[in-house]
Simulated scan of single mutants.
Amino acid sequence: MDGISVFVFTTLEPFLKPILKSSTASLQSISTEVIDNHDQYEVFNDARASDPTHSFLSKDHFNLILNEPAGQLAKIIVVRFLIFVR
């Protein structure tokens, strides 16, 4: 089994590593463009801004520390709601 794993990883790694590196760089670039947009900071720069959902803090970014606990909490709430509705 270990021999098969070594064969697969040594055979596939040279092909997959550049593809994953390129796609990761592309996703990072796109994310940076979204976050660095002027609209993202409107709620911080304009006291009269009325749409805080355009803040990058309210978006679902996977690298935010509260993303996972918020997702777990949402799952608990949905399950409890479905049990209550039945």
Rank of each mutant, 00 (worst) to 15 (best):
S29H: 13
L66T: 13
H54T: 11
L20T: 02
I77N: 08
D51R: 08
P18H: 00
N67C: 09
E13P: 04
R80A: 14
E13L: 15
F9L: 12
L66W: 06
N67Q: 15
S31Q: 02
I76R: 14
F81V: 14
S58K: 15
L16Q: 06
S5W: 07
F15L: 03
T53I: 07
G71M: 12
D51S: 15
P69Y: 00
V8Y: 10
A49E: 12
S22N: 13
A25Y: 01
I65T: 12
I19F: 04
L73H: 11
N67K: 11
D36W: 00
F84W: 10
L66A: 12
I30G: 06
D2Y: 08
S23P: 01
S29Q: 08
S22G: 07
S5C: 03
S29I: 04
I83Y: 10
P18D: 00
Q72F: 12
S31P: 00
N67V: 13
F62L: 12
S26W: 06
T32M: 06
P14R: 05
E68N: 10
F44L: 11
V79C: 03
A49F: 07
L66H: 14
T53E: 11
V8E: 01
I77K: 13
S50R: 13
F9D: 14
F62P: 02
I19M: 02
V79A: 12
A70N: 14
H54L: 05
R80K: 13
Y41D: 08
S50I: 13
L73Y: 09
I77H: 05
P52V: 08
S26P: 01
G3M: 15
D46K: 04
H38M: 06
N45T: 15
D60E: 13
V8Q: 05
L20V: 10
E13I: 05
Q72G: 09
K21Y: 03
F56L: 01
A49P: 00
H61M: 02
L64M: 09
V6H: 05
S26H: 05
K21H: 08
L20Y: 05
F56Y: 14
L73T: 15
I30A: 07
H61F: 14
V78D: 01
S23V: 10
K75W: 04
T11M: 08
A25F: 02
S22R: 08
R80W: 00
A25Q: 03
I19C: 03
V34W: 01
D2K: 14
V79H: 06
